[in-house]
Design a protein around this nucleic acid. Sequence first.
RNA 1: GGGCGCGUAGCCUAGCUUGGAUAGGGCAUCGGGUUCCUAACCCGGGGGUCGAGGGUUCAAAUCCCUCCGCGCCCGCCA
Length: 516
Amino acid sequence: MVGPLVRSATAKGAYVNFRLDSAAFVSATLTAALERGSEYGHRPVAGPMASVEHTSANPTGPFHIGRVRNAIIGDTLARVLRAAGTPTTTQYYVDDMGRQATMITWIWSKASSEWPEPIRRAVEGPALTDEKPDARLGRPYPAVSAYLKEDGTAREEVAELIRQIELGTPPSRHRELAQEILGGMLESLARLHIRFDEFVWESDFLRDGSVERVLERLHHAPHAVREENGAWAIDASGYGLPQESGRVVFQRADGTSLYVLRDVAFHLAKFSRFERVVDVLGQDHRLHARTLDALLHEYGEPRVPTYLIYQDITVPEGGRMSTRGGSAVWLDQLLTEAVSRARREVLARREDLVESDVDRIAEAVGAGAIRFHIVRVAPEKPVVFRWEDALSFEGRSGPFVQYSYARAASVLRKSGSDQGPFAFDPAKLTDAEELALIRIVARFPRVVADAARTMHVQSLAGFAHDLADQFNRFYHAVPVLRSGEERASRIALVAAVRQTLGNALELLGIPRLETM
RNA sequence: GGGCGCGUAGCCUAGCUUGGAUAGGGCAUCGGGUUCCUAACCCGGGGGUCGAGGGUUCAAAUCCCUCCGCGCCCGCCA
């Protein structure tokens, strides 16, 4: 039991207490953090590849923050997996085949003078041209959706477009419209430092024949049944699925494919490239996930994806965020609000900054506040959106962590040896606040590995807060630059904290600020 | 009705997978701290039947059962 780091082990009641060799522990921790630098807490990249599919929102309009929860959880997970040594590809599944995207094409295929009156009325308002494409092109969407419920002729027009898409002859502007809207959506996510490695278009699985191949095999699956009207289904009674019919239809009577069938094709493609396949899904997709598992099993694919399910973000009045109900809080709106508030905070305490620095800091703080606010809560917990919580810059928040990082950076700047080398003597780091701080720094690699294994991305936020919190205590209790013979060692400790805090912020996708 | 998820101080939340020491934080509240390395900070106080009940165990927020409340889903939609 006793080794290089353990000085003694004693039994106490039901516990064994280990006493660490403090100097060796301090030395090992600081050396690791300082020498490994941006790789501290990471493991070498090796081994099986992973795919993380997240966000995948229909290209029909701007993000509301309910959808953004998916993006933030997924992006953080991908970062954590990579840090834990798993080569990870993020995938955005673009649904260009469903009614949603088709409704957009339907309305924009008409000159606005031909738009049905209720839709035209709904989008009347200030000039639309300076809006982002997702906002501009997505504007009629809620009205179109409502209109189709009332108007059978329009519904039939949309159905005809869907058939054309299925046949591989989509309306001319179909994909371009989706692409343009998606571009606007991604612009917003980029402000949260969320980007994707791949965009997978649903229609591609039809075009390349993989849906057809899946179909051939599924027709001969163990529990495949043909309905009287010609539709194909799986008798899912053995899978414990709650469908009232007991069946999962995967091909319509007219021979066209259903979403879950295309998703089977997508996942087979994933399994051919990735060892670990993770889907980040809202809780409303739980049943879809189980259905997909059942179909993969019927197909003969032994693997199933790992699902990271998150609960909806609701509004205080109750209910999910709804575009139609007008209860949605848009990401762009939230960003604008967060950044302008951050700007006020910066201006209130800094008079020495040039305008461009104020803007840059405000943008980083606003984005940091939003990301942290979402990721700090376990995905399976429901979240009620409240402005005052989302815009909190104090306590357990992104800006608090960013501030602590900037504070450490400031100390190092003033130390005159910002970039090191950092020499330390463990015998000089004996204060209780110092040791507490070092213990948290030492935890980081474990936190990253555990988060990757359990997909508990919220623990990264917890760690970042704990480290920032203890650093602030240390900062108040222990002088660094004004200290005597401990000075060099304390500077090294601050450097190790800056590095670790910076690495944690990187995993959270929150910008590091050298000053704020 | 069935399936799945959630329930921890006034509010928000960690811990639950792998059961262990006085259940950690944050917001709010009350009281303090700035001639000194960034006060987006720090120190201190008050505030808890871990939804309820039962069970397993030397030991339960954590595992099992029942119940209650809330959410989601149960389409030839996506």
